[in-house]
Design a protein around this nucleic acid. Structure first.
Length: 806
RNA sequence: GCCGAGGUGGCGGAAUGGCAGACGCAAAGGACUUAAAAUCCUUCGGGGGCAACCCCGUACCGGUUCGAGUCCGGUCCCCGGCACCA
């Protein structure tokens, strides 16, 4: 007799055995083929693991365990993305140092992960807030700086005048300060940027060979936002001599239809020609209004077109010499294209609205629409009109002709633009990697010499920004004051820190060589383990995080530090787990389900299994406690198979050959394409079959255990041991199926008459049409339906269907 | 507005163009029990019929096909992402 199912004891026992035997540690330069499985490392928040982590981690946990049985040297690491706002805010409220808060949280996370039996290689844990780690984050920044890919410029940041702090976007949602509720304004600030735009084309190209889910590729392509068009110079009258206004357009074909110009309120043409403009005050007022709006409002709330005409300046259309007015309007943004557009109201919806509002002329240059009602924007159809030498051409031909002429005249050229903005890279926060730059009055911004890295975060009494919005580090004079590494003069350190995206942009590399003091990772080890074979995470990270880290990897490849250009061969994404009420799980809604209590009540195996069984892996799904019991029953019933198993039979019984082979195929293939729910369902079906027949051989049971092992490893190991096997499953081989034994000799073939199902006949799987027809005649019900009717047509798809048309 | 993914029982969900609803939950009935829990058995999309069986059914309208949840055209609705991108 076997003991009762004591999941607590069993799970602890096997976790210890695996740890002692070190079965989950990856071997540097191992002889087996390597597999690098990566999950997005968690932010160690104070509330511990949540259900989303379980769903995200369990999938690749299953794949990783399967790969080990398949003979791979598996690197399945874990770490912590521990810099960030919540910890800093918590530290501010409680007076505790973020370091000790982080350490505690990491401890909690680690024990939770271990209790779930995840087979991470805990000997390679990475913590982005460890100075031995962020030394290399800083080192990468220095390399970017040296290659001219990090630069300083001004930009607008969210600022609360009452709290006197700069706010992150998530702290200023809806244009209101998170802390005090007052309005957030846009304040001009020095900002560090990384030139990710220089890598736009490369990031686009690189996608081609990658095995990312199609929707993930699409999101990245949209995010990069490549558009091909032309830049055109318009001469400006009334301003400085030789003043020009350069625009970007994708519709050079419509140049004859330009009736006015619009520039962003921030456009430099205003300051540069201030002396020639008569309504400067009015323009500045409008600009000030614009600045009050954050990006959200500018894009969403302000659907109504507004703007102000620049009095004193006009532009000249280079194609027809027409003199046209110039406006400023906030629908034109300063950081896309040239911050100036040529307005073609007849063929652009926004320009159309603006022209209507300001009563500007609308000139049709493409026939086919009704411009008295709306802008005509179809570029596929339509013929050029009112366009001089372009008349009669198609839109495409006209575009080419215009760009050709402008290029010849030296006032325009082809141009590609990207929607993706450069990466704003500094934060006025304490709990982040200090940006390793020193400002020297003589030498300017100088990178900290590599030998002096890391620039360590000093201890602090208070974590608040200064009244001017400077980082808390600005108040630490020992930190700020230093010598210029170039000339030795008195200098000051940069006091801003990096965004949370920094540490997570290269962590997968550090897993390969986590303790290396001389390089971010050894080149040969990178060659062996890299790139990541399979990366799984949330859809919310497939643009920013995934693009940022691809950018860094491509850069590190370009400077010869990393031996592969693309970091992730394959990327998948799980759906959200919602609260039982169908809303996003959140503390404020009180619908959060804690993995801790579930593991306590049901055990890790049941929870892991249920998390994968609950539904389609890629869809959002409401959590339901009610369903867990089904997985608990399943596991107990598998355990109870010990009572009926025929221990004398190591082989697979003749009658079960088809079922066992199909099961192996189904489970192993479903795991590879994220269909965990149907893999589990197949095992349940198999279990139902053997229990209803009350028979299973020892050999059949072991195969079931090997298939179940990646999902529910503890109980599988336990049953395997009770069966008397001396090799633990963790060191066993994954079962293979025999393709020739997938179908049973006899099948139930559905029979349709006139396309409607009328019954089934039992025939050999490879039966001929004549044999099937004989079986139909032998079936009383079917032959009765056919009697007296001539069969006009017979459709027979072997193993699928017989359809008789009468 | 654009891009993407969807719409199937009371619920979560299955279904290379070939028996719609696998598997699980919930529910109902029964067995066991002094009783309950657990477990086991049965039923479980809707309608009709004493019954064998018949009819309807995968958001809606139409099409292709021997055969459509699946393919094509159109409509509606939900979800995710991006958004005045010139």
């Amino acid at each position: 007799m076997k003991p009762d199912y004591d999941f607590k004891g069993i799970e602890q026992k096997w976790q210890e055995i695996w740890e002692t035997q070190r079965v989950h540690e990856a071997v540097d330069f191992g002889v087996k083929p390597k597999f690098f499985g990566l999950i997005e490392f968690p932010y160690p928040s104070g509330s511990g693991l949540h259900m989303g982590h379980l769903r995200a981690f369990t999938s690749l946990e299953i794949v990783s365990r399967k790969r080990r049985l398949e003979g791979y040297n598996v690197l399945f690491p874990i770490g912590f993305d521990a810099f960030g706002l919540p910890t800093e805010n918590y530290a501010m409220q409680t007076g505790r140092h973020p370091r000790s808060v982080t350490d505690d949280n990491i401890k909690t996370f680690t024990s939770q992960l271990k209790a779930l039996g995840y087979s991470f290689d805990y000997s390679r844990v990475v913590d982005t807030t460890d100075k031995d780690y962020y030394k290399w984050t800083q080192w990468i920044f220095v390399q970017l700086f040296k290659k001219g890919l990090a630069y300083k410029s001004t930009a607008y940041v969210n600022y609360c005048e009452k709290c006197k702090v700069i706010l992150a976007n998530e702290e200023s949602q809806g244009g209101v300060c998170d802390r005090c509720g007052s309005d957030v304004i846009q304040k001009e600030k020095d900002v560090w940027f990384l030139k990710i735009r220089d890598y736009a084309e490369s990031l686009l190209d690189g996608l081609e060979g990658l095995d990312y889910l199609p929707r993930i590729k699409t999101e990245q392509i949209n995010w990069i936002g490549k558009s091909e068009g032309a830049e055109i110079d318009f001469a400006v009258k009334g301003g400085k001599p030789g003043q020009k206004l350069r625009v970007f357009t994708t519709r050079a074909d419509t140049l004859f239809g330009v009736t006015f110009m619009v520039v962003a309120p921030e456009h430099p043409i205003i300051a540069e020609n201030a002396g020639f403009i008569s309504n400067l005050r009015q323009l500045e007022d409008y600009r000030a209004e614009t600045r009050k709006k954050n990006e959200f409002e500018r894009a969403h709330v302000n659907k109504d077109k507004t703007g102000v005409k620049i009095q004193g300046l006009t532009a000249v259309n280079p194609i027809n010499g027409l003199e046209i007015p110039i406006f400023i309007a906030d629908y034109v943004t300063p950081d896309y294209g040239t911050g100036a557009v040529m307005a073609v109201p007849a063929h652009d919806t926004r320009d159309y609205e603006f022209a209507k509002k300001f009563d500007l002329p609308i000139v049709e240059v493409i026939a086919g629409g009704d411009i008295s009602r709306e802008a005509y924007t179809d570029i596929q159809n339509g013929v050029m009109v009112n366009s001089g030498f372009l008349n009669g051409l198609s839109v495409k031909e006209a575009g080419k002709a215009v760009v050709g002429k402008l290029t010849a005249d030296g006032i325009g050229c082809k141009k590609i633009n990207y929607n993706m903005k450069d990466w704003a890279f500094n934060r006025q926060r304490y709990w982040g990697e200090p940006i390793p730059i020193i400002y020297c009055p003589k030498c300017g911004a100088v990178p900290v010499p590599e030998a002096d890295l890391p620039v360590v975060l000093p201890p602090l009494d208070r974590y608040r920004q200064s009244e001017t919005g400077e980082s808390p580090l600005a108040g630490v004079s020992d930190f700020v004051n230093c010598k210029c590494p170039v000339c030795g003069a008195d200098a000051k350190r940069e006091t801003d820190t990096m965004p949370q995206w920094a540490g997570s942009s290269w962590y997968y590399l550090r897993y390969i060589d986590p303790k290396n003091p001389n390089a971010l990772a050894d080149y040969e080890k990178l060659k062996y383990f890299g790139p990541v074979d399979w990366y799984n995470g949330g859809m919310e990270h497939v643009t920013r995080h995934l693009i940022y880290s691809r950018f860094w990897n491509q850069f590190l490849y370009d400077i010869g530090v990393v031996p592969f250009r693309e970091p992730y061969k394959k990327r998948t994404a799980q759906g959200l787990i919602l609260g039982e009420d169908g809303a996003k799980m959140s503390k404020s809604l009180g619908n959060v389900v804690s993995p801790d209590s579930l593991v306590r009540d049901f055990g890790a195996d049941v929870i892991r299994l249920y998390t994968m069984f609950i539904g389609d892996y890629e869809s959002s799904i409401p959590w339901s406690n009610a369903g867990i019991i089904g997985c608990r029953r399943f596991i107990e019933r598998v355990y109870n198979l010990l009572d009926i198993a025929d221990l004398s039979q190591d082989s697979i019984s003749q009658k079960r050959e088809g079922a066992v082979n199909r099961l192996i195929k189904k489970v192993s293939e479903d795991i590879e394409c994220l269909k965990f729910n149907t893999a589990i369902a197949a095992m349940m079906t198999f279990l139902n079959e053997v229990t209803s027949e009350n028979a299973i051989t020892k050999g059949e049971l072991r195969i079931l255990l090997l298939l179940l092992y990646p999902f529910a490893p503890h109980i599988s190991e336990e049953i395997n041991e009770l069966l008397g096997y001396s090799t633990i499953l963790a060191k066993s081989d994954y079962p293979k199926y025999d393709p020739s034994k997938l179908t049973d000799a006899e099948i139930e073939l559905p029979v349709q008459i006139n396309g409607r199902l009328k019954g089934t006949v039992r025939v050999a799987a490879e039966a001929s049409l004549d044999e099937v027809k004989a079986a139909v005649r032998a079936n009383p019900a079917l032959s009765a339906l056919l009697s007296g009717n001539a069969v006009k047509k017979e459709i027979y798809v072997p193993k699928k269907i017989l359809n008789l048309i009468i």
